[in-house]
Every structure is written in C-alpha cells, then in structure tokens.
Computed example of a mutant assay.
Amino acid sequence: MENHSSLINNYSLNCNGKLVDLSSPKIMGILNLTPDSFSDGGQFNNEKSALQHAEKLLNDGAEIIDIGPQSTRPNAEFLSSEEEIRRIGNIISNIKKEFPQALISLDTFYAETVKFGFNEGVDIVNDISGGQFDKKMFDTVAETKLPYILMHVNPSYETMHDKIKFDDITLNVNQYFSQKTNELLQKGIKDIILDPGFGFGKTVEDQMRMINETQFLGFGKFPLLIGISRKSFIYKPLGKSALDINEETQKLHLKVLKQGAKILRVHDVADAKKTILEWESSRIERGSVGEF
C-alpha cells in the first residue's frame, strides 16, 4: 500500500507562543484528578499527590501532562463544569509554577472549563466530544488560540460508549475528521491534533483495524494522537486486567509510531519513552530519518 502520510510529517504546534516541534514523537502523560477513573481513580485527586505525579511523569519522559477532572469511562459519574473547576483548583497553576517547561493539556468537553484552564495557563485543549457536548466549545477554543485535540466519538454524552459496527471504520473516522476540521479551520483554529477515539463506541475488531490503518487516518494533514493506554479492547480479549498489558501496549505503540503517530497518550510514561527511543534508533539504523 502506498504510504500517504509520509508526504507531510513535519508538524509543529503553537502552544501559548511556544513552538512545539513534533518531528520526534511526544509523550502525553495522564494525570487523572478523579475518584472514579478506571485504572487509577482516587490516586491523584488532591494538590500534593497531583504535583508529585506530574513530577514523576515529567521525569519519566513526558513533555505534555493531560489533566482530566472528569472520568469518561462507561458508567462514570457525570460532572458539571463547576465541579470540574472545583476539582482542578490550583493544580494547573501549581504545576506551571513548579515545572514551567511542562506543557499542560486540559481534558474537558466544557467551554467554561476551557476558559478557566486558559486563565490558569494550559497549553492545549483535549476535548473528547469533538465540540458535540457543548456548542460553545469551538468558539471558546478559537478565542484562546490554543491547539485543539479533535477526537472521533459518537454524537452525545449518553451514546459515547454505544458500540457501533462501522462498514469501514477508517472511512467513517476520516469523514468525521474532514467535516470537523473544516469547521475548526473556518473559526481560525489551525493547530489541530487528531485522535481516532480508541475506547469510545467501537468494536475490538474496528479498533485493531484502526491500529493497522493508522497511516491512513486523517490523510496526513494533521498530527495524530493515539490513546490506547489500559484500554479494554487490548486487555479483555487477552483475559487480563488493565494493569497487565504493558508489553502488548508497547508493541501496538511501536506499530502506530511506524505509521506516523506523533503523540502517545499514556499512563506508563517510562515504558512509552523506551518504545519511542527504540523506534527512533531503528529509523537511524535504516537511514530513514526523513521518513516517519
């Protein structure tokens, strides 16, 4: 198969005036401020433990910290924007003060939470809803001029985990990306990152197909973020738990890196860092630095 994504692969992001070069893949470390996230709920939901975990993520090799005040696992408690903001408290500003080099993405589908996060110093908006759960989201992101992570998901909060068997998952995701990126570009949002939405309303088979067809997602127009860390489509077919699939996850990470993925969203940063180093050393050995 011809590899379309290799035509355009030198991406950069403007994060609050700081230019972030994505020619080398970046790691986004997950910092859940939630009591009910599926694999680490309640571990980092106070300021002290959140700051300590942020430091560990950075020391292990993360360049982006993804702060999530609300769990989006199946059957999680639904929170208002006000409750999200209360949970965040001073955590963003404290991390920025302690680790000014860190980039912070804010995982929310609320425009009001984005406004709060922007005033606290976040660098990236990570919206699982593609602007579908809050109609003010795209306009708010446009006002902040922050990079925006666009995720493929079902159209409502209530249906986001409903399993759909797509005729052609890659085609469907690309049609969604095409429509949504056009909307974002029309509003002046140019720094767009695409997330195919692993773990949200897709069958195991379709998610494995997305892994195998990563190079065709988004047509190479925007950088791809892959978030497969501790996802059930990996561990359930193996009869394992979310915490016991690190080896399998790294093999899949290597597969998507070979197809041009630029950001890995992970819990296990140190292992993802090893995978990226392995991938980069293999590129150098093949003399293919100019490729993915």
Rank of each mutant, 00 (worst) to 15 (best):
G199T: 14
F198W: 09
F219Q: 15
F219H: 15
L217F: 06
Q215M: 13
F216R: 10
L224M: 11
G220N: 11
E205N: 11
V204E: 15
T214D: 04
F177W: 01
F219P: 06
K202V: 01
K180P: 00
L184H: 06
G220I: 01
G188C: 09
N212Y: 13
G188T: 08
N182Y: 07
N182P: 02
F177E: 00
G199E: 02
S178D: 12
F177P: 00
G197T: 02
M210F: 03
F216G: 05
G199W: 02
G201L: 08
I211S: 02
K187E: 04
T203L: 08
N182A: 14
N182L: 11
T214A: 09
Q186L: 15
D206N: 15
F216E: 13
N182R: 13
D206A: 01
T203I: 01
K190C: 14
D191T: 07
E213Y: 09
F200M: 08
F216W: 09
L224S: 04
G218M: 12
L185F: 12
L194N: 03
D195K: 14
Q207G: 11
M208Y: 15
E213L: 05
R209I: 10
F198G: 05
I192P: 03
M210S: 02
S178Y: 05
L194S: 01
G201D: 07
Q207L: 00
F177M: 00
D206L: 00
P223R: 10
T214V: 05
F200W: 01
G220A: 10
N212R: 14
G197D: 11
L224H: 10
L224F: 08
G201R: 07
F219G: 13
E205A: 14
G201T: 07
F198T: 09
I193C: 04
L224E: 10
K202E: 10
M208P: 01
Q215R: 14
D191S: 09
G197V: 06
K180N: 00
E205S: 13
G188R: 01
I211P: 03
D191R: 06
L185P: 04
G197W: 07
P223A: 07
K221S: 12
F200A: 05
G218Y: 09
K190Q: 15
F219V: 03
P196V: 01
G220P: 07
L185Q: 15
I189G: 04
E213I: 01
F200D: 02
K180A: 00
P223I: 11
T203G: 14
F216C: 10
T214M: 10
T203F: 12
G218E: 04
L184S: 01
G220S: 12
L224A: 09
T203M: 11
M210H: 07
P223C: 06
I211A: 01
